[in-house]
Structures are given as structure tokens and as C-alpha cells.
Design a binder for these strands. Structure first.
Lengths: 245, 245
DNA sequence: ATTATTGTTCCACAATACGGTACATAATAC
DNA sequence: GTATTATGTACCGTATTGTGGAACAATAAT
């Protein structure tokens, strides 16, 4: 189904450049204008894109992808199961609680409950981050087979954004072993002045599908609070895994 | 491009039933098993779905749709532009601030900053609601041409969930006229005990693409706070529209 | 043991996606 | 002002490609 492939590529190209016209897309994708036009018409008929007002037809996404996204990375409505636990975690800690899934060698923040404190750590929803340095990312990595970890490691190196810290391969392996032992991951090297603790959420298959984390400003972080956060996360993750199983 | 249409239907069916097998999908969609299987293989190759572990092959979504969704309803990164204003609004009001887009005759909550108060209004991200009774929905409707409003009205009536309040058509028209005059919409008939004020965000084309709202428990709501919220929203919406233009 | 259901492969047929060419309109250059 | 490029859209004959019935092995239900 070549046409499907092309149509999906067109869809993603529209997402990246919206609002955008046929010709620009065609040159971007190195495809004949006619083919792109056909794909656009089909995607419009299917309700995934719409022409924005104006003389020259510019294409933009509808929210149809959003309907899917709500369910992506979540068998059985991950969010519905996890959200109550996130509320409880915040109540118990008064700190910011994050839920992230992994996609394309990165973690993606899909839900967040914020600390009530004036000083707090805020990340944008939908934001992406390296798996090698975040608490959520390392918690997930620790539950993946070694070869997949390697793939992700390489992919992260390739991406290699400026100023990004990438741990040595053996240092990472050692840390992941420790994470497996403890059951949770921590980081203070992701955002300056933020200490985070994370645990993986594994579906019924045992594969990690998401991770929960608690972030605190280092000024509010102590040995005691770190222990408390780790314990709470482990407890809730256990209950969540139970519910998903 | 019939195949594209079918593939997209399969994709959405997978989203609705994941994890799900070929046969169930085929009967669900009333399509020959072979066609569905072909579509699944293509979607897998394209990276939109993956087989979940297990003997019998069950299909589930990857997070690829999520990548699109982040950009849906937002040319020029709507969220990036709006988020700082939401932060400022919450700082100024200490109340919950919502950002919603509209899709398929409903409003969808895509970003939320919560009130620091113990008593606060919390809606789930990605949640959907009628446009006819929400502050965000009415703010958007007031900026749409009359015929589109009618389409949405009819669609909402058809959906007709149990216990859902649907205003009379002329009452709605009158209210929307008032919203156009004031520039903002209010509601207290959406969630019991919650008063909300909303304004539309119109892109460069003048079409409404999203809406901002402030929600407060009625116990904390007064004539003064309502005036304040409306003014702040209008001010910020103006600045946002400026930036988008 | 028997039956129903599932995921998967094969294949001949024709439907349909393909992309070159063409045309009209709107920005741009001169 | 005209000339020129770039853009969105329509047409059309060819063969590439998607189509769905039938058959298969393997599991689950009876």
C-alpha cells in the first residue's frame, strides 16, 4: 500500500509546516505535485486536514490526530488509571508529578499535576526529553532489553543536540543495573536545581509503557524526602501495574 | 485513494479497541480480513502501530499520533505562544486556567494550569465537552459564521448524551450575540458549582482556533472577581492574537 | 475428538493510483 | 505597464498495485 505510506508522509509534512501549500510540500517530500495533491484531497475527505481560509489554499491539521493521541501509549486508558494515583501522589508530597511515555528514543510528557508550592518545576505538556538523563527515561530503560537500550543510546547520540549531556555507555549500563535493583531512578542532571525520582509502569506484558516521576527543587529536597518519594512511587506503581494486569 | 481511507479507518479502529486482532477489526469494520491485514502491515511499516507481545498478534498504537496531535490546532506552535500567558493569568488570579481547541463539534482540553487553592476545578486533559454550554465553547461559537454554528448545534443534538443540557436555538443565538458584544463568554451550567469565563483565540485569519478560560468554584466567585477575570482574559487574548498574527 | 476461530500466505483479476502534460491565476521581476 | 516565475487545479492513458476469495496451520472452545 504505497499510497497509504505516501499519504501518511504528507500528513506528517503538513503537521511540520502548517499552514502549507501543495508545491512546498511536493518539493519538501521530493514527490510529484500531482501525487501530493491527491494525498491532500484524500486526507481532507477523511477529515484529517482542512484548507485554511484564503485565496491560495493552505493546509492545516484538524484535531483528528488528537483523538488518537489520547489513546496512544495507553492500552485500556492508561491515563484514566494513572490520574487518580497522580492526584494522590501530589496530595502526599505537595510536589510536581509527571506521567511520560516513550516514543522514538525519547520520553514525552503526557500528563502533569503541579506542586502547589510557589517554587516548582514546570515542563510543557507534550515536551520531549532524552531518555538517558531523565528519571522517567532511565526508569523505562531499566526495564527494556539490552539491545533496545543500545538502539536508543545510539539514536540519542545521533540526535546530539547542542549542550546535551550524554553519559558514557558503561556508566549508563551501571546506573541502569542499579535502577533495576532499587526499582526507581533518580536524576539531578536534567534540569538545573531539580531533583527527580521516577518509576516505570509496566503493562500486563511486562514491557514498560510509561513512567511516573516526582520533581522537586533541590532547595526543598532532602534525604528524607527522597526516600519518601521513592517509596510512594514504588507503592503506587505497584497498584497501577496491578490494575493494568 | 481508497486504500488510504481504509487504512485511516483501521488506524482509528485500532485506537478504539487496542490491543486488538485482525479478525475483530475486520468484523468491526465490515471489511474482508485480508484488506484489514494489509492495512495493518502498512501501518506497522509506517510506524503508527506495533504488535504487542504475545502469541496471538494484538495491535496497539505507537505514540506517532501524539507527535501530530501536539501540532494539531496550532499553527506556529499555539501552545508555546499561549502557555506563558496562561502562567501569567494563573499568577494574577490564583485560579485554574484552561486552553481548549474545538474538534468535531466539541471542545477539547489541551492544556491546563491548576489553581493553587485546595478547592479547585480539575478537568482531565484531552477531555471533551459540548460547545453549547462551556465558556470556551461559547466563546468559539460566537466567532464562527452562523451556518457553522447551526451545524454544530445539530451535531450536538444528535449526540444527545443522557442528562446533557441543550439550550433552545434562539436562546443560544441571543447569548452568542451578547458574547460577541462583550468579547467573552461565561457559564455556570457546565459543572455544578463552577463558574467559568472564556475568550476565543483567533488566528491571523480571524477564525477562532482555540479558547482560554478561567474556572472558579462559585464559593470563591464574586461580581468583582468575574469582572477581573473577563478583563484579564480579554487583555491576554489580545496579546496572543497579536503574536499569532 | 470435533468444531469454530484466529492469524497468515497465495494468486489471478481489474480497479486505481501514477505522474507527465496542460492551463489558469496570482505573486514577482523588469 | 508587461514579462516571468510560481502556484493550485484538471485531464488521461498506462501499468502498477491494491483487491478479496480461497486455502492454510495453529490455537481455543465445545
Amino acid at each position: 500500500m504505497n499510497s497509504v505510506r505516501k499519504a501518511l508522509l504528507v500528513l506528517e509534512a503538513v503537521a511540520d509546516h502548517q499552514p502549507v501549500g501543495v508545491s512546498e510540500l511536493a518539493s519538501q517530500l521530493a514527490q510529484p505535485k500531482t501525487s501530493v495533491q491527491r494525498a491532500l484531497a484524500t486526507l481532507r475527505d477523511a477529515g484529517w486536514i482542512r484548507p485554511s481560509a484564503g485565496e491560495r489554499t493552505r493546509w492545516e491539521l484538524t484535531f483528528r490526530a488528537g483523538r488518537l493521541a489520547r489513546k496512544a501509549g495507553s492500552h485500556f486508558g492508561l491515563r484514566e488509571v494513572v490520574l487518580p494515583h497522580m492526584e494522590e501522589l501530589r496530595r502526599q508530597t505537595d510536589e510536581t508529578v509527571h506521567l511520560a511515555v516513550y516514543d522514538d528514543s525519547e520520553v514525552v510528557l503526557i500528563e502533569r499535576l503541579e506542586s502547589p508550592h510557589a517554587v516548582r518545576h514546570v515542563e510543557p505538556l507534550g515536551g520531549r526529553a532524552s531518555m538517558l538523563v531523565t528519571a522517567t527515561g532511565k526508569a523505562i530503560l531499566a526495564n527494556l532489553p539490552e539491545d533496545e537500550v543500545n538502539v536508543i543510546y545510539e539514536a540519542t547520540c545521533v540526535r546530539e543536540e547542542a549542550g546535551m549531556f550524554i553519559p558514557m555507555k558503561d556508566a549508563l549500563a551501571q546506573e541502569l543495573a542499579e535502577v533495576r535493583l532499587l526499582g526507581y531512578a533518580t536524576t539531578s542532571s536534567w534540569r538545573d536545581g531539580v531533583f527527580a525520582t521516577g518509576v516505570a509502569i509496566t503493562g500486563p506484558s511486562g514491557n514498560p509503557i510509561a513512567a511516573l516521576s516526582i520533581s522537586t527543587p533541590e532547595t526543598r529536597s532532602s534525604d528524607e524526602s527522597r526516600r519518601k518519594h521513592a517509596l510512594l512511587l514504588l507503592e503506587h506503581a505497584g497498584q497501577i501495574n496491578e490494575k493494568l494486569g
